[in-house]
Amino acid sequence: MTGSTEASLRVEVLGPQHGKNSFESGAEPLDRYLRLQAGQDARKNIAAPFVLVMPDGAIAGYYTLSSTAVSVGEWPAQTVRKLPRYPLIPATLLGRLAVDRRQHGRGYGRYLLADALLRSLRSEIASFAVVVDAKDENARRFYERESFLPFPDQPMRLFRPMADIAELFE
């Protein structure tokens, strides 16, 4: 991403002013979600959708955040040793992340991920980690490159501890 382009980008809460219909990530379920479901999820407090807005107002990408809980038995053994013996551990779910196909290869996926991690860290709600469910192998590799760790019995479900995220922004 070039400095001047990055300076003119902004991530905003999805609102009625955002033109969702022209967004095309190349993954129809992600496109359909943004067009048809994201606004409803926001109004019902099911998920918080955020959009990356280009200088011309077009949506370059989006992600969603919501709270979740993960059974203590799902975490890796070395992680469980550090956790209290609660049956469920609170986490933040990065539910969806997509970049418009016309913007692929410009670093906007990493930009959105960094924004999502920072918002998760700044939240006033307790959360042990950010959890993602990778939709395919490419997505899994993307998250692994960004230091997410797989759950032992669910290789497409990954997490990054909030303590690790805090170190990113120190």
Rank of each mutant, 00 (worst) to 15 (best):
E6T: 13
E6S: 11
V11G: 01
Q17H: 10
G19K: 14
K20P: 00
K20Q: 04
E24V: 15
S25D: 08
G26C: 06
P29E: 04
L34D: 05
L36Y: 15
Q37T: 15
G39F: 08
Q40Y: 12
A48D: 14
V51I: 01
V53G: 00
P55K: 01
I59Q: 04
G61Y: 05
Y63I: 10
S66A: 15
T68G: 09
E74Q: 15
E74I: 11
V80K: 13
R81H: 10
L83R: 01
L93N: 14
L94P: 01
G95E: 08
R96D: 02
R96H: 10
R96Y: 02
D100G: 03
D100E: 09
Q103A: 14
Y108V: 04
A114H: 11
L118W: 14
R119Y: 07
R119N: 07
R122P: 00
E124N: 11
I125F: 03
A126N: 08
S127K: 07
F128V: 02
F128H: 13
E144C: 05
E146C: 11
R157C: 12
F159S: 08
P161C: 09
M162C: 00
A163W: 00
D164I: 07
D164C: 01
A166F: 01
L168H: 02
L168P: 05
E170P: 08
